[in-house]
Simulated assay, not measured.
Amino acid sequence: MNISSGKELVEACEAMGISIGEFAIRQESDETGISREDIWNKMKEALRVMEGSTSKGVSEEVISVSGLIGGDAYRMGKYLKKGKSVGGSVATRAMAYALACSEVNASMGKIVACPTAGACGILPAAVMTLKDEHGISEDDIILSLFAAGAVGAIIAQNATISGAEGGCQAECGSAAAMAACAIVQMMGGTPEMCLDAGAIVFKNTLGLVCDPIAGLVEVPCAKRNAQGVLSAIGAADMVLAGVKSRIPFDDTVEAMYSIGRAMPESLRETGIGGLAGTETGKVLARRIFGGKD
């Protein structure tokens, strides 16, 4: 079955009485001829990498090659242990994990690009936080990753997941929409609720520019990953409480793409405009590349 939109995905899942994750597995097997077991094991391998990248940065100080970022996940991990965080353990843990993945990525460590390396912390932080805080089983986590993949595929097919083409809304926005879908599925939500959560995420990230300092995926990317997972958690909680998105998922994807195309080149991963264009941004870039301040 050829699915090209969120609407078609929800209709197919409802007609078959299955989750988005289950649909994605069946679709992958039908299209590739690869067995369900092999597809499942491949995703399990990805989960192992996610576990490693989230835990490494929290348990030790990981510094990026440029030195722009590093140690923030470790700081957040220590802060979490104090039990006095403003946002509670879920929010603090999620941010720590997201920062950890970003720091591991920037230190040339192994990560899962989900959907990109620049947004690699959001989905892993979401699923690992739910595992720790809600005791979600490994099987349910893996199934949710397939759901996230299905949503990511729809975004990529109809818009873009590239910061160079659509700004950070296309990278961290897409990753957060994928994470929101995964969270809702893990917590027992319907396919329609999964897509509503993704739509809410996009509505709150539209217009987010991609302005990396020195053109590196570090500042402000790491902290945007931390905020991206919070956006996913917030959207998931809203739809699980019964809140619906008045704008359908497919429309939010279309809006994101049109906004991305309208963005000037300086705000699409060129390291020219936005924060990269500030005086501090320019100074940091010169330091990294050996120029004079």
Rank of each mutant, 00 (worst) to 15 (best):
R36F: 15
S89G: 10
C120A: 10
K110P: 04
E51A: 11
V58N: 05
E61G: 09
G70H: 07
E103A: 07
G67V: 02
A113R: 03
C114K: 08
S102Q: 07
A98C: 07
S19T: 08
A94C: 01
A100I: 00
E51R: 14
G88D: 04
G118T: 01
A125S: 13
A94V: 01
E60H: 02
V86I: 15
S53V: 01
S89I: 10
I34Q: 05
S59Y: 08
C120H: 07
E45W: 12
M95R: 14
T116G: 08
F23N: 07
R75Q: 13
G21V: 04
K81F: 11
T116R: 08
V49I: 15
S102C: 05
S102E: 03
D132P: 01
I111Q: 02
I63R: 14
A73I: 03
R36W: 13
T116L: 09
D132A: 15
S64T: 00
P115Q: 06
R75H: 14
E22P: 08
T32K: 08
G70R: 02
G70F: 07
M50T: 00
D38N: 14
L123V: 15
E22S: 13
P124Y: 07
T92W: 09
E37V: 13
N105P: 05
K110A: 14
M76Y: 15
V49L: 11
A46K: 13
G71Y: 08
N105M: 09
L80N: 00
I34N: 04
A125T: 05
G70K: 01
A119T: 00
L99D: 02
I111K: 02
G121P: 00
L68Y: 07
R26H: 13
A96S: 04
E37H: 11
V65M: 13
M128T: 01
S66D: 02
V90R: 14
L80S: 02
R26S: 14
G70T: 03
